[in-house]
Design a protein around this nucleic acid. Structure first.
Lengths: 192, 192
DNA sequence: CCGGTGTGAGACAAGAATGTCTCATATGGG
DNA sequence: CCCATATGAGACATTCTTGTCTCACACCGG
């Protein structure tokens, strides 16, 4: 009975399990617990030891997503420097979480129980504030609302994650593709 | 025994059922057939008379999505005029289908059976060709691949559909928000 | 060497979802 | 008016999924 626990032998990498679960559930949201376990390379029994059930699994996914988003926001220091650069730093920090976020973003059923969305509210607020700050400083156009820009960022992150996962976009281009499209759009700029 | 069939009395509006099913399944992808039926305002028995099962329902959703995309592509005449204007026309034509497309785009499990994806292949090809044409004409920048722009268009359509459905973006702004972000990006343009 | 710990495989029952059926009812056309 | 058609409600068996349990085994530390 180690009073610290968890730090023993060949324990399942909880985060790895969550990541593969997110990858699978994004692609096939009706996947069975057995399929999730297989995808993670563990048995259903072990999966069930770590996550009491499907609900608990999704909750854990949400918690992880929130934690990683807040960590990305903190690391990117979105309240410092030019907003455009802050967006670039933020997307770079969010890249490893993109697959997880794609699942959480598309699985709006999470918001039904409305237990945990206070975390998302904080994150949404931080993102919206970033875009608002960019508008105020004159960097961003004002005909696209900060709320929509936030929404679009989520959508592009999901698109990017899927495009990379299916080999349609090179992994190394992830940040560039998303940031350049979000900030600059598809149109060619006039030469300065 | 009407040899023409289908044009009888208070028959369920098949397309209406499919649309409400897409709206529900997008929000809660694990919804029951019973929930789908309720959402469509019909009984489970009737739903099952029209769609043999969940698979058949999803197939029908996919068929409808493909048909509407191809119709939108045809109406928008994406091979005519400036590419930017073509994109604008296309998004406008796709707006009514955005909810359905959001479901189909995020439900990548469809591609497992790979029966029907030839329709998507044609649509993807048309979209990619549109962006490629815009690059060739000098309208679009060339550091964002046509494949990525296609992917981003899908993602933004989905984001837009959800944002409108949840009241975060005004319905009337749908086309403008998507087209302006996709083409122009968030950065302010220099005055010409 | 041996005990503790985490895991995989499988059995098992309880529950949920599905697919199919019947019957009653309402509607509109002939 | 009557009949054909479409629907709603519900019963029902089947299948799938889940949650729990047991047992055997591998690994690591002492």
């Amino acid at each position: 009975m180690s009073h610290m626990g968890y730090r023993c032998l060949m324990a399942v990498d909880r985060e790895q399990v969550l990541r593969s679960a997110a990858a699978l559930l994004t692609r096939k949201s009706t996947a069975t617990m057995d399929e999730v376990a297989r995808a993670a390379g563990i048995s259903r029994a072990t999966l069930h030891r770590h996550f009491a059930g499907r609900d608990a699994l999704v909750r854990a996914l949400e918690s992880l997503g929130i934690a990683e988003c807040e960590a990305a926001l903190a690391t990117a220091r979105t309240d410092e420097g030019p907003a455009a650069e802050a967006v670039r730093r933020l997307v770079r920090e969010m890249e490893p979480s993109a697959g997880l976020l794609a699942f959480l973003y598309t699985e709006n059923q999470l918001f039904e129980g409305e237990e945990q969305n206070e975390g998302w509210a904080r994150i949404d607020a931080a993102l919206t504030e970033l875009f608002r700050r960019g508008q105020e400083s004159g960097e961003f156009r004002i005909d696209l609302t900060p709320v929509w820009l936030t929404e679009a960022l989520y959508g592009l992150l999901a698109s990017g994650a899927w495009a990379v996962a299916e080999g349609r976009v090179a992994r190394n281009d992830f940040t560039h593709m998303i940031v350049e499209l979000l900030l600059g759009g598809a149109l060619r700029r006039e030469e300065p």
